[in-house]
Simulated assay, not measured.
Amino acid sequence: MSDYDVLCIGNAIVDIIAQCDEDFLVDNGIIKGAMNLIDAERAQLLYSRMGPAIEASGGSAGNTAAGIASFGGRAAFFGKVSADKLGEIYAHDIHAQGVAFDTKPLAGDPPTARSMIFVTPDGERSMNTYLGACVELGPHDVEGDKATNAKVTYFEGYLWDPPLAKEAIRMTAKLAHAAGREVSMTLSDPFCVDRYRGEFLELMRSGTVDIVFANESEVTSLYETSSFEAALEAVRKDCKVAAITRSEKGSVIVRGEETVWIDAIEISELVDTTGAGDLYAAGFLHGYTSGRDLATCGKLGSLAAGLCIQQIGPRPRQNLRHEAEQAGLA
């Protein structure tokens, strides 16, 4: 019996979300649809130019942990905040979602991470992230009992930037595999893939990572091809399971020679794509750790992502377990 279904490792970030027009992105030199890493000075400047905003605890893997808990799964999270106001907000929110979060906060600087997210009228989000305390997550924060007692450990590619976090992920993966568990990652962002293509492929091909999540642009970037079909055939050979999201085209899951196509759910209005991939991973991993077939795992992912993009912010407002029951997927 495992204590947790999924242990998520990621950047503990408070999202500050505001709507804007396309000109705002151009005027402020913001790359649309990407996660842009910024320093403290740039963070202050963008914050001063933002319109009315919503503050919500975010971070890719943290969103996934919250989604798994909303489905009724048992989720844990490793992530570093500072002992400041935003750090208190983050810890409160993730605990309120039902996620086990016991990483010791950092005393003093740097402060808790924050991401200024600008949402354009087409629902696309452009993230500008100051990592702050996130970069201090390291091997000393690895809780061995959680690493060995979670069915799947899941980490975000974004966390491959800070060197200490890289060590923490490798240590956790080693503990997980020694205990007969599986390890999963999300590629996170095409720019992230460009920075670490060789290392990400090594993680997959060496067996350090068993399950990979990506969207279409990330997986084609990983294999440096414009052909989705070619990328799909390549990723099939490089990991045990891969789940690739394709926005309104749904998703496709591959495992060995097996291929499962999943439709996107019908939505009433596209509001904000922030967290869609995170919530897809939550639904998939909830199904996977519950012993469901790949088609059901994909449908649970599609359901969670579809609900997420019809609201502002990445954390589920509905009870996902109830939504799954209503959809006949419980």
Rank of each mutant, 00 (worst) to 15 (best):
S2D: 15
D3T: 14
Y4V: 07
L7S: 06
C8M: 08
G10L: 03
I13T: 14
V14S: 02
Q19P: 04
N28K: 01
I31A: 12
G33D: 09
M35G: 06
D39F: 04
R42T: 12
R49G: 03
A53I: 05
A56H: 12
G59D: 09
S60T: 03
S60L: 11
A61W: 03
G62D: 08
G62L: 00
A65Y: 04
G72F: 05
R74F: 09
K80N: 10
A91S: 15
Q97T: 11
D102H: 15
P105Q: 10
P111C: 09
P111T: 07
M116V: 12
F118E: 03
F118G: 01
M127D: 12
M127F: 13
E136Y: 14
E143Y: 11
D145W: 08
K146Y: 09
T148I: 12
N149C: 03
A150W: 02
Y154M: 02
D161K: 12
L164R: 14
E167W: 04
I169S: 05
T172I: 10
L175G: 00
R181T: 08
L187A: 01
V193T: 10
L201D: 10
E202Y: 07
M204T: 11
V212A: 07
F213Y: 03
E216R: 06
V219I: 15
Y223I: 06
T225A: 04
A231R: 14
L232Q: 14
R236D: 05
V241T: 15
V241A: 10
A242E: 12
I244D: 06
T245C: 08
G250Q: 01
V260G: 07
A264H: 13
I267D: 05
D272V: 03
T274W: 02
G275Q: 06
A276H: 00
G277D: 04
D278C: 06
G283I: 02
G291C: 09
T296A: 02
G306C: 04
L307I: 15
L307Q: 05
C308I: 11
G313N: 00
R317F: 08
E325G: 07
